[in-house]
Design a protein around this nucleic acid. Structure first.
Lengths: 250, 250
DNA sequence: TCTCATCGTTATACACTGTATAGTGTTGTT
DNA sequence: AACAACACTATACAGTGTATAACGATGAGA
């Protein structure tokens, strides 16, 4: 039952701002911190040091606490990660332009891209448990509302959701990679590897002509590239849904 | 220059079966192992213990060596991971049915899904450096050949590639998650969390009606679900590409 | 043939991770 | 007043990746 209680406490913390009761009477000394304060610190650490720098000790010392002191607030590190992920992912409000399905999908993707630009570590997290918290559920429901309004066929919705989500995450990752390569300089390993590959195999462009012919984004417009990528996928998905059954905007 | 040499050696190891020369004269004692033997061991460990169990010491003891002995063969653990990823990802041959773009995309996705079923840890690896090795390049070029044959517009190709790749990976991850939940039993945390969420927030289905209305795959046909998901995305992408410009099969 | 740089391999060590455990002191309930 | 519950600290432990130094075997240049 210990493990089951742990899961319960975690879920209750996840939904703490959505009416989940803190459960039970309390008897010990007053908590000096809030769950949100701990999560604020965790998000700050992750924003500054990346996912690799997000250790329990780092968060704790930022709060002036010992590492073990976090456990009553956020539980295991796995739980801390899930809580921080949701904590950093509030859904902003925006009006749908309703000019086309592709446009609305693009807008959703661009907003998610903005979120990932503010917190690049979000795109590094495993996709599997992305449906956990209330904020992430909000993002999902928001996307489903768009698909509902345009009457996308129910069987295709899950597929579109994963496709669009995945493309945004991939775009955010490459964007963050470019940003790191330009800034800190210690993480240009990606470029160095590509250069070395061209140097070692030599006729790479002839072995993989189609990959070589892919439109490369020049070094200057890499800032626009992810947005364009998201827009393209949204376009194709939108047309594909229209072709398989979509009516006029509601 | 040390770091540059390390990148060079890594790339040379990656392309060792595609004509990359081992470089330089050798003077020390003969290597007792091959790079492929080390990578075989690494893949076996990852297949058995998952990505978390893939430590340098685990691979080394399986080979009867000390942990540090791996460095001359595969370099850093990051390099070991990249090498093992490519080593486990040979592209199988198959004929394209050429009945429709969606069909060919689906077949590609199902083959990749088979690969991820054999090596589930491949889907957990970060997507960013997926373009490194020759085998992965083969997969990419194979997909681009399909798009080329059906004359997909060049600007849309990169987007379709990431979308299809991402969906296959996501499907493989959920499939692996289901498999673990059914088997070992210690990793049914996902189900427990979902149950706890329904228990804690209660009116979850009313707060997120569209997410709740998503067609749930029953517990029995979860084996078919990932294939169906891939097929759906391929269908939508195929239709979308046709709508934006695609000619008859070459 | 002798010499020496080179390289495979081991042993040890270091910083770091997450967290189990025991103990201390504060709080609310009985 | 007594006790259970809880926040918090300190310590400890099993891991992780890898830097470093030493040892031995090997091949090239003299």
């Amino acid at each position: 039952m210990g493990a089951e209680d742990a899961v319960d406490a975690h879920v209750r913390r996840l939904w703490r701002h959505r009416g989940a009761e803190p459960a039970g009477p309390r008897r010990g000394p007053r908590p000096r911190l809030t769950v949100d304060e701990v999560l604020d610190a965790a998000v700050e650490v992750a924003d500054a040091q990346g996912l690799g720098g997000l250790s329990t000790r780092a968060v704790a010392t930022r709060l002036g606490l010992s590492a073990m002191a976090l456990y009553p607030y956020v539980g295991t590190k796995e739980h801390l990660l899930a809580l921080a992920e949701d904590h950093a992912s509030p859904l902003p409000p925006w009006p749908d332009r309703a000019s086309s399905l592709a446009d609305d999908l693009t807008t959703w993707g661009e907003h998610l891209l903005d979120l990932y630009a503010r917190h690049p570590w979000l795109a590094e997290l495993p996709w599997a448990d992305a449906a956990g918290g209330p904020n992430q559920q909000d993002w999902l429901e928001r996307l489903l509302e768009i698909l509902e309004r345009w009457d996308a066929r129910p069987e295709s919705r899950a597929a579109v959701v994963t496709a669009l989500y995945a493309v945004v995450r991939a775009a955010a990752q490459t964007s963050a990679s470019y940003a790191r390569a330009g800034a800190s300089g210690d993480d240009r390993a990606w470029l160095a590897r590509a250069d070395a590959t061209r140097r070692v195999v030599g006729d790479l462009a002839e072995r993989y002509p189609l990959a070589a012919a892919l439109p490369q984004h020049a070094a200057q417009d890499w800032r626009d590239a992810p947005r364009a990528s998201v827009r393209h996928v949204a376009e194709v998905l939108g047309r594909g849904l229209e072709a398989t059954g979509v009516r006029s905007p509601g």
